Amino acid sequence: MTETPGWTSPGSPEAPPGPTGTGHSAPTPPPAAPAAPLPPQSAPTGPGIGLIPLRPLGFGELMDGTFALVRRNWRAAFGLTLALAAVLELLQAGIDWWIHTSGSRTDAVLSNNYLAPLALFFGVLASGLLAPVVSNGLLGRDTPLAEAWARVRGQLGRLIGLCLLLAAIGIGSLALAIVPLALLAFATDLPGLLALLLLTVPPVIWLSIRLTLAVPALMLEKQPVLGALKRSWRLTRGAWWRIFGLTLVFRICLTVVATVLAGPGEIVAMVLGGTPGNGAAGDGPAAISIAAVAVCGIVARTVTIPLEGALQTLIYADQRIRREALDLELAHAAGLPGYARPAAAAPSGA
């Protein structure tokens, strides 16, 4: 099984210097009339390249392309994330049962927040699992589940390490922002909770967007953990608002999708009165309700987790196309005419 070409970073050992800025030689112009040269900055698009045009993508194209890539490779995408979704929902079902038997109303209100850190961790992990699927999809290649897992398995240790480091950075940045502001709130009798929310969340969101492309960089460029963080920092420079807006709108769309898919389980729980914290329900109705919510939750997470991960990788590819002419290398990898590497010069005197 061969690795998908075209994903080395500029200046990496695998990529000799070249005039395109991506570490690869410029494509050989096709033998055509001088009056109709190929566009120098973007690879041509057409049948056989894939679902995504090999050029800088617009806002809507990135969103549509994410759904198209996951839909085409649904076996690999859903297969890789089904286990993550099942773990989250089984843990949530256990929490809901504990709340039913011995929890309070406050526990019931907070029940969906207990697993939020783990859900974020699994979301980042899923983006790494889906990166090879998206990279092949850009070239019009389908990725079976076995191949996708084989591509991921060798880097799983570094991927988990990066996910843990990103979680630590997020928690650490939040703590560094909250502690001094909490002391200030107590000292000045300010409405502390609102002030903390307004003043601490923006820096954490800013940092998360700057590091959002670290996972695709690690998986597709085989970067070390710290190198992937630096790579994301460079690729997102000057594009923060664009990436933030796209991510925000897409997550709102995913919330709607998840609500629709999880709706039947919530309806069953409401009819049976077995929602967490409702002491009027007996153990039987509560168990059925929790099971129904868990099953529908697994379906919802299995569908939405790979979509968010695929979007991350697609944004990463788009940033490299905009800054490093990655489209030229992908066009060569896709076998487009006129984008073959130039043949080596013959030795003098031959």
Rank of each mutant, 00 (worst) to 15 (best):
G263F: 15
D107V: 04
S9V: 10
I52Y: 02
P264Q: 03
L84E: 09
L213C: 04
L207G: 03
G338S: 07
L164S: 08
T106H: 01
G309P: 05
A33I: 11
R210A: 14
D64P: 00
R242Y: 00
F67N: 07
A300T: 07
R151W: 01
I52L: 12
D189T: 10
R234F: 09
R320H: 06
E329A: 14
T313W: 03
A131Q: 05
L218C: 05
P180M: 02
G79K: 09
L88C: 00
Q155I: 01
G297L: 08
G18Q: 04
L199N: 07
A93Y: 09
T20M: 04
A195Y: 14
A345Y: 09
P17M: 09
D318L: 08
L166Y: 08
T188A: 13
P27L: 02
L330D: 01
P144S: 13
L174S: 15
V70T: 12
L130D: 01
R72P: 01
E89L: 14
V271I: 15
G50I: 05
I52R: 02
T313D: 00
G277A: 11
A76V: 10
L184D: 13
G65A: 10
L38R: 15
A345S: 14
P276R: 12
A168M: 11
A292K: 01
N278G: 08
L164A: 15
A310C: 09
G46A: 03
A126S: 13
R72C: 02
V271L: 15
N73P: 05
D189W: 13
F122R: 05
P276C: 07
S104N: 11
R105E: 15
L220V: 05
